[in-house]
Amino acid sequence: MTRDAARPDGTDPMGLGHTDGQPPRRRDLFVLATDRADLNALLVAVAANDGDAFRRLYDLAAPKLLGTILRMLKNRPVAEEVLQDVFLRIWQNARSFSPQAAPAGAWMNAIARNRAIDVLRQGRSAPLAGATSVDEEVDWFERIAEDRNRGDDMMDAASLRHCLGSIDPQARSCVLLAYYEGYSREEIARRYDRPVNTIKTWLHRSLLTLRTCLEGDGA
C-alpha cells in the first residue's frame, strides 16, 4: 500500500477527483503520521469556523468515511445521505474534538459508524440488490493481518491483531462482522444458526477477552 502520489498534501483542496466508478482504493489514511497531523490541524481549524479547512478535511476524509458507511449500509444513495449528515455533525461538533483524546481520523470514523448503525437499526436502509454479491465475503481477520499499519498506530494495531487472534474464530468473526459490516445480533444468529442469546454471550466473552488482553499488553 503506497502513498498515492496524487493525493493532496494540504495545498490542493480539490485534488481528489470525485469521480464515480473508480475501484475502491485502500490507503491507510488514518495511520500515517503526516495524515494524522493534517487531519487534526484541519479539524481544529474547522472548530474555528474555517470553511476552507472544512473543504480540505472533506477531500481528505470523505472517501474513507464513505467506504465505512457503504460497507455497512450496502446502499449507495443512502450511504451518501448519511455521509452528508456525518459532515454536518463534524462541522457542528468540531469544537468538542480534542486531539489528546482521540486522533481526528478515529473521531470522525466513530461518528460515521454511529450514524450508519443508527440508520441500520432504525430499519431505514435496505441493501440494494446487487450492490454487493452475497458471496463476495471478506475475511476481515485476514484483511487485518495483511494490513501493514505504520506510524503511531503500528503497536496498537499489532496488539489488537494479537488479541483478536486469541479469540475463538467463530466468535471473532461475530465481532468483526458487527464492526465492519454492521451485523446485528439477530443477523449473526441467522448466519451461524444459533440462538440470539448465544451470540450475545459470544460477543460479551470476546469483548472481555479483548479488553483483558489489550490491557495486559498495553500496561
Binding site: D20, P24, R26, T68, R143, Y180
Partner: peptide
C-alpha cells in the same frame, strides 16, 4: 480504533 485502517475508500 486501529480496525478502521483495513477498510476501502470510496470517492
Amino acid at each position: 480504533a486501529s480496525l478502521a485502517a483495513a477498510g476501502d475508500e470510496v470517492a
